[in-house]
Design a protein around this nucleic acid. Sequence first.
DNA 1: TGTACATCAGTGAACGCGCGTTCACTGATGTAC
DNA 2: TGTACATCAGTGAACGCGCGTTCACTGATGTAC
Lengths: 210, 210
Amino acid sequence: MSEETTPSTPPDRRARLREQTRREAKDIALEQLARTGPAGISVNAIAKAMGMTGPALYRYFASRDELLTALIADAYTGLAAALTRAAGGASGGATPGEGAQSVRGARLRGLAHAWRGWAKEHPERYLLIYGTPVPGYSAPEETRTIAAGMMRTTVSACEGLDPAETAEHRALRAWTRLHGLVGLEVAGHFDGMDFDVDQLFSDEVESLIR
Amino acid sequence: MSEETTPSTPPDRRARLREQTRREAKDIALEQLARTGPAGISVNAIAKAMGMTGPALYRYFASRDELLTALIADAYTGLAAALTRAAGGASGGATPGEGAQSVRGARLRGLAHAWRGWAKEHPERYLLIYGTPVPGYSAPEETRTIAAGMMRTTVSACEGLDPAETAEHRALRAWTRLHGLVGLEVAGHFDGMDFDVDQLFSDEVESLIR
DNA sequence: TGTACATCAGTGAACGCGCGTTCACTGATGTAC
DNA sequence: TGTACATCAGTGAACGCGCGTTCACTGATGTAC
């Protein structure tokens, strides 16, 4: 309803509207994704949901594939941002005034909970990254770069935890353990099972710190 | 080329042929799955690959959905069988004549390596179970039963490992840790990364025994 | 062993559908003078 | 401020395609007497 950004600068108004439309299309695609799976994403259906005709979307995405690629790249960006936010701040802020003991592993702990939090907030995005790979789809360079960045963030959050193990090695274990639990949870494999997922997750996180 | 089973008993010959054709259809479906993902599985394409027309397959499966269900059920059965085989035999057989120390955790170790082995042998089947859930697909009772059985096998393989932790709890951790590594590996997330996956896996397995 | 009938496997034509994508076109929005 | 032109957003018709599924039918295989 309201114009958030300065409406007085006309030069890039069109560009801004374009970006808005792209965003809207991707958001609707994500809803579709959640409802019908990756293969159910349809250019025509997205356009229809936006109140336009199918071909119109080709002003914004060269093809269905490009749309999918954008979706995947966005997912990576989103998760990476969540991790950076969590791992960056946790060493200093959050719960101050506690002893040095509680600070130990705080960054990894923060990263871990951010990981799970993001995944539960955006299950379809998480599965877009870590679920069944899309057909003949090889990750574009961009996502590889972001994935490498996430790994660095994790490694850095693991530094100084255990002199007997390299941070790299521990980060790998963190990655696999986090995904193990979160991947199963997000895919619904815990549904109907009678145990405390939060507790199990916390235990696993602590197992990585101790 | 050769008839394996007794060709002299005519009563269930048709039934046997039927089962053979179903098998062949499912095998081809699995190839399709590997090549194009779950959504790419097409009744017509399968029939064509078998040298028959599309409608013919409806003699063997009531619908595409039933075919998919059969595929999923088979995958569960296959993994469950591999686990049972491994966890059942490992406590007594395999490498005899070694000390009691090496026997400790042998069943869980066997189960773990069987898990990964099966997954790497049948990546598309593994992802059918543990990858992105198919659209509006809720697991039929049969698969829930098999899944519960796998859990029991795992729990039993965890018994007596640590008096301070219930076997159920340890089995859950085993499940999530195994899947974490195997799921990422099978989906190709380790491709191009420079580390020893076998080593990491062994480390994780030992972390569950120790 | 031969005949009559029932069951089953597979074909080919046809259905309606939604898909991705192209193309020529209309109207609105922005730019230059 | 007004006019002339270029750019862009969106439409509607059309394309070829492969899909799941049905239906009436043919021919082969098995069963009963």
